[in-house]
Structures are given as structure tokens and as C-alpha cells.
Design a protein around this nucleic acid. Structure first.
Length: 640
RNA sequence: GCCACCGUAGCUCAGUAGGCAGAGCGGCGGUUUCGUAAACCGCAGGUCGGCGGUUCGAGUCCGCCCGGUGGCUCCA
């Protein structure tokens, strides 16, 4: 006799008493929307015998993160089954769940799929869900499994089994379909109620260009068609927010074929927004004790030799020769800031020394990775380098994180995901510096994160060879995550450049450098902002804050007078005195996402008022000019 | 860089089968002077991404290059 408690997805817990081998399904009959089980953090199928030592088993549904992964993993199998029905010659490779959905990499022997092919695959996948096939699992000895998959022509599966090098492997079946898979899986294909094939692209087997090119088919699925609707809405919304489209519509920036790929031209509307952001950034940094500097864009090759960049970063650098001298356009600002640090003897009393710069850098990125403002070849980092002692690392990182929170909050970002990348303690020889330095730095970063109340995950072995780092992803209005802030400890460069300070002991010590950026780059941040706000920049950022619309040309003079009053108060204003109807002018102003529209007619001129229309809210009624200026100032964070 | 797809007016797009390059919006000119999301009439605007090839004839077919999109990889 065994006793086991089972928790259902709705939280309900029931106790079961049974004998012999039973599966969860055997016991509960109806898993109440759940489709996979977890015990002690381990997932297993509802249709396999309950593990020997299990006492409390959870049945998971789509709301659970693990459950979702299993659901999408099973969906990848359904996708593969659909493909095999339509293309029996196709060879399967791997098909994992991903953050939003799943994909399956499949070798079609050189065929590339068309949109029509995808539709057909989707129809077949939907059919497989409707067929409600039962899923089963079996274990095979590896040798037998190899033979089996060889007989099916699934060469990649054979290769995988060889790689696993395990005595046994598991395979899953549903209907006529078989796949090598660790599992677990949902117990029937009918649990998937909504299935969509999203896109196809190419990928190499194991990501290696020497290997055959595969078709990577992306899909998404849900246990409830309503969830699919919501998801597609978000996708649509994301598409409508595409910063590349908004950038053109709002005339923020442009790229020019004749200028080269990946080089951003900030148009006047974008430049003013950037300038507002930069002014704010500078003010906050100076307040936080940073020293603002400017350094050259072009530096001698000798400097990049000392820094090591010509050795390990050359393929990303624009390097050229002139009169027998090598020069490079800077891909990073750190060596330049080190020179300023070294311009005089530094005492421990000078530390921490915080040097900041909106530094424009150029990197020769692979052409295939360029993407709007989010990935370019020339960009301006909101960079800073903090020279500290080992003891000061913690406090300095607290300051950086605090500054980050304050600055990003201004843009409506308050939700962060933080990764702490540390060394792999089993490969100490791959890292520079002593164990003591590393332990101290890692603990400093951890303490700093805790002091700032930031939750984080630890990524072992993800640190650079020269020091641990913190990466922060911010969540935008659509819940998407963007990597922006980064804080990186560096033991290396101070040594390469002999960046030292005189300690209280009168001896020279190497400084520690902390590289950090809050936005990452102005270009990327602008792209993120556009998508985050869907182009509706808040008043303080909007390129044009107020547009004044005289109803008839006879009110143009009054409109200009109001514009002047606003301009004197520091607002960015336009008067639309074109010979058009009011409705048209409103349409045009709304199209440009201008936060405030002031309508001027006979009434307003007579009463010395403006009729205020606010974006997204509509007509707000009449205001005295000085009153509305007060209101706008407050909204735009003007200092009183 | 690699794989796949794409490139027609400032923007969005149509262009059948290789046979005179089109529309809407926008721009310009005129009429209209109008109260909260598109007044009317007219005009201009194109080396069809670039170069080469096939053809009597290329926006259309082929090759190379440039640029873009989605991935691989990389990263701010």
C-alpha cells in the first residue's frame, strides 16, 4: 500500500491510496486541466508510473512555467508530426520550447518552405490536435534506438543518441509519429486547442555554418483559443509599435543606403529628443559625483595594443594606416578614460573617481545582425568608468544601481530582471586575478544588489575573463525585456595601463575599474523608448509638445502670440497656419502624436484663452494661457 | 559573415504571360475661411536599388554588388 498526495492545478489537494504501479492519470482520472506532473522539482508524464519516493505530486497546467514549457515542447512534436505527414523525406533534428512558443529544426534536403507550405503544415498540425492522439513513452537501449532511427532515415537522431552516450534513451509516440525525446509530454494531442505556425527561417545544425542548413519553423500554441487571440493581439500591438516604422512616421531618424549600413542619421525630431535625454542624463550624473569628459573618436593603434583590443577585438574595429601609423576608430571609451585617469598621480583619497562620457563608438558588426536602432555600427554609449579600490566596489555598485533606478524610472521603467555573471570556480585558470579578488568582487556585487532590493539570478561561468558583471533587463509596456544597463568589474585594464593609486601605505596599488552604462546606447534606448511608448512620447520628451491650430487665418496672429509665450517658457511649439479645416489639422497633429493641441477661434481670442485638446483624452475645455502653462510645466517636470 | 526572402514616386502599394510605368496619401498651385480625426479642382513627381548579361524588346528572366527583413552567430 502506498499513499500519495496530489495537488491539482486549482490548488486542491487530494490523497490517494494504491498498490502496485500506477500513473497519475490512473489515480485521478481527470487531471482538471493539468497535463504534466512534478515531484521534487522533477517533471514526469501523467501516464508513467509514479516515482517510488513521491509523496506530494503537483499536476501542472499552462499557468505554470514548467507546464508551459512542456506544453510547447509537445506542440513542437505535433509540428514535427505534421511536417512528416506532408514531407516524409524530411529529417528531424531538435525542437525545443522557447520563451514564446517553440520551434523545430528540420532538414528538408535543400527545400525552403514558402508561406503556403507553412499554412499547409499548420492545417495538418491543427488536424493532429483534433485527432486527440494518445501520447506514450517507452525506453529503448541506445543501440536498439540507433537502429530504429536509422531505419526511419532519421540520421540526426542517430547522431544525437551517439552524443548522449547513455545506456538507454526514451522515445515518445503519438499516432504514427515517433520521436527521440527526454520528455515529459502532455498526454493527448487534443490538449492543444489552438495551434499556429508563425514563421520559418534557416538555421544550421548545431549553429555551425559548416553543417547542413535546416529550416527552423516557429510556432505557438495554447490550451485555450482565447489565449491565442490575446497573444496575436500582443503580436499585432508589437508590430504597430515597431520603432523602425514609428521612426519614419514621426521623422525621428533615417538610414541611407549611400551612407552605409548601420549608420544612424538623427533627424531634427530625434535629435531634440536625444538632446533632452542627454541633458537629463548629464544633470543626474554630475549630481551623482561623476566628472564629465569628452575624448577623441580616433585613437592611435598603440593605445589599442596596450588595451589588448587589437588582439581580441580587431575584427569588430575600423582600423586604418596613415603615414605608416596605425589608427583605429574607438569601439569603446575605456582606454581614453584611463588616459585621463593616468594624467596625474592618483591618491587613494581621489578614489572613487567617476569619469563619464556620452561616447560615440564604432563597431564593425556583422551585416546580418543590423536591426533598426537596436543594432547599429555607430552608436553613443552613456558610458562611465569608475576607478576604485577593491573595498569600494560594493558602495560604488550600489550608487550605480541606484542611479539606474532613478533615471530609468523617469521613462516609466520600474520592472527589472537582473543577472549576475560570475566565474566558473572549476576553471579558475581561465580568469585573471586572484581568487581573493574574485570572491571579493562577486560578494560586493551580491551585497550591492541586495542593498538595492533587486532580485537576481546567478549565471555561473558567464563572467568575462577580467571580472564579474551585472546585466539588467528592463521590462517595457508590453512586458518585453530589453538589456540596457550593465555594470562590469575589470581587473585587467588597470594592469595593462598601470592605472595605479598611492595607498595610505605609500605604495602603488592597481585601481579596479567598473565599466557601466545605464541606457546602453542612445540609439538602442531611443528604439526601446519608441516601442515602449508606442511613439507617444511623454510631454517632456515629445519633439513638438504643443501644436496650435487657428481655425481661420484671421486668428493666426493670436496663435503666434500664444506660441511665443510658450516658447519663452521653454516649450517646443508649432503653429499650424496652413489653409486647412480644423478637422484636418487635428488629424494631422494626432498623426504626429503631439501631446497637446490648442485650438484657437473667435471665443479664445476674445477671452484670452486656448481650447485644449490632450492626446488620448480629447477636448479638455478652455484655459487661460498662464494656467495651462502652469499645468504643462508640472507635467513636463520643469523645475519650479 | 552565412542561409532564406525582399527592393516600383517622399510614404503605402498595384503592375496580368517579357510589349508605352499606375493609384491613394503626401508635396505644389488655385478655390474655400471652416469649432475637435480627411473640403474641392488642378499640377508636378520615376536612371522600377546599382552594374552587367539574355532578348527585336527587361520593372518582369539570369549573374554580381548595394540596401532591407527573418534567422544562425554575436552583442549596447
Amino acid at each position: 500500500m502506498r499513499k500519495v498526495k496530489i495537488r491539482f492545478p486549482n490548488g486542491e489537494v487530494k490523497e490517494y491510496i494504491f498498490e502496485g504501479e500506477k500513473s497519475v492519470l490512473d489515480l485521478v482520472g481527470d487531471p482538471k486541466g493539468g497535463f504534466v506532473a512534478r515531484f521534487n522539482g522533477k517533471l514526469f508524464d501523467l501516464f508513467v508510473p509514479i516515482p517510488e519516493d513521491a509523496d506530494l505530486i503537483e499536476i501542472l497546467d499552462f499557468n505554470d512555467k514548467d507546464g508551459k514549457g512542456v506544453f510547447w515542447h509537445s506542440s513542437a512534436h505535433i509540428l514535427a508530426q505534421a511536417v512528416k505527414r506532408l514531407y516524409p523525406f524530411a529529417k528531424l533534428t531538435v525542437g525545443p520550447p522557447i520563451e514564446n512558443g517553440f520551434f523545430y529544426d528540420i532538414d528538408f534536403g535543400g527545400k525552403t518552405l514558402t508561406p503556403e507550405d507553412l499554412e499547409e503544415i499548420e492545417r495538418m498540425a491543427v488536424k493532429i490536435c483534433e485527432e486527440d492522439l494518445e501520447v506514450s513513452r517507452e525506453e529503448l537501449e541506445s543501440e536498439k534506438a540507433k537502429e530504429f532511427f536509422k531505419s526511419l532515415g532519421e540520421d540526426y537522431k542517430v547522431e544525437l543518441i551517439e552524443e548522449f552516450n547513455l545506456p538507454k534513451v526514451s522515445i515518445y509516440r503519438q499516432g504514427e509519429f515517433v520521436d527521440l525525446c527526454k520528455g515529459p509530454h502532455i498526454y493527448r494531442t487534443g490538449i492543444v486547442k489552438s495551434f499556429k505556425v508563425l514563421s520559418v527561417s534557416s538555421a544550421y545544425w548545431k549553429g555551425d555554418p559548416k553543417n547542413p542548413s535546416l529550416q527552423r519553423i516557429y510556432g505557438i500554441s495554447f490550451p485555450d483559443p482565447k489565449m491565442m487571440e490575446d497573444y496575436l493581439k500582443v503580436l499585432e500591438e508589437a508590430k504597430a509599435r515597431d520603432h523602425r516604422v514609428l521612426g519614419r512616421e514621426l521623422d525621428i531618424f533615417g538610414f541611407y543606403e549611400e551612407a552605409g549600413a548601420g549608420f544612424v542619421f538623427w533627424h531634427p525630431n530625434g535629435a531634440i529628443v536625444r538632446s533632452v535625454i542627454e541633458d537629463y542624463w548629464k544633470r543626474e550624473h554630475i549630481k551623482a559625483g561623476y566628472k564629465l569628459v569628452y575624448t577623441p573618436h580616433l585613437l592611435s593603434g598603440k593605445l589599442w595594443e596596450i588595451s589588448g583590443h587589437l588582439n581580441y577585438y580587431a575584427k569588430n574595429m575600423f582600423v586604418f594606416e596613415k603615414d605608416g601609423q596605425t589608427y583605429a576608430v574607438k569601439p569603446m571609451n575605456c582606454p581614453a578614460h584611463i588616459l585621463i585617469y593616468k594624467s596625474k598621480v592618483r591618491s587613494y583619497r581621489d578614489l572613487p573617481l567617476r569619469i563619464c562620457e556620452l561616447g560615440t563608438v564604432y563597431r564593425d558588426e556583422l551585416s546580418g545582425v543590423l536591426h533598426g536602432l537596436l543594432r547599429v555600427r555607430g552608436f553613443t554609449q552613456d558610458d562611465a568608468h569608475i576607478f576604485t579600490t577593491h573595498e569600494q566596489i560594493e558602495d560604488e555598485v550600489v550608487n550605480v544601481l541606484n542611479l539606474m533606478k532613478r533615471i530609468l524610472k523617469r521613462f516609466g521603467f520600474e520592472d527589472f530582471e537582473v543577472e549576475l555573471s560570475i566565474w566558473d570556480p572549476n576553471r579558475k585558470e581561465d580568469y585573471m586575478g586572484t581568487e581573493e579578488m574574485w570572491e571579493n568582487a562577486i560578494n560586493s556585487l551580491k551585497n550591492a544588489l541586495e542593498r538595492e532590493g533587486l532580485n537576481y539570478t546567478v549565471e555561473v561561468g558567464e563572467a568575462a575573463f577580467y571580472g564579474p558583471k551585472i546585466d539588467v533587463k528592463l521590462k517595457d509596456a508590453l512586458g518585453r525585456r530589453w538589456q540596457c544597463t550593465t555594470v562590469q568589474v575589470d581587473f585587467n585594464l588597470p594592469r595593462r595601463f598601470s592605472a595605479t593609486y598611492k595607498g595610505p601605505d605609500g605604495k602603488d596599488h592597481y585601481a579596479v575599474m567598473i565599466h557601466r552604462a545605464i541606457f546602453g546606447s542612445m540609439e538602442r534606448f531611443m528604439g526601446i523608448l519608441l516601442e515602449h511608448y508606442a511613439g507617444d512620447l511623454p510631454l517632456w520628451l515629445a519633439p513638438v509638445q504643443v501644436r496650435i491650430l487657428p481655425i481661420k487665418s484671421e486668428f493666426n496672429d493670436y496663435a503666434r502670440k500664444v506660441a511665443n509665450l510658450l516658447e519663452e517658457e521653454g516649450f517646443r511649439v508649432e503653429v499650424d497656419d496652413r489653409n486647412e479645416r480644423l478637422n484636418y489639422k487635428i488629424l494631422d497633429a494626432e498623426k504626429h502624436k503631439i501631446p497637446y493641441i490648442f485650438v484657437i477661434g473667435k471665443r479664445e481670442v476674445e477671452n484670452g484663452t486656448v481650447s485644449v485638446r490632450k492626446r488620448k483624452e480629447g477636448d479638455k475645455g478652455s484655459f487661460k494661457v498662464e494656467d495651462i502653462i502652469k499645468i504643462l510645466k508640472e507635467e513636463a517636470f520643469f523645475q519650479p
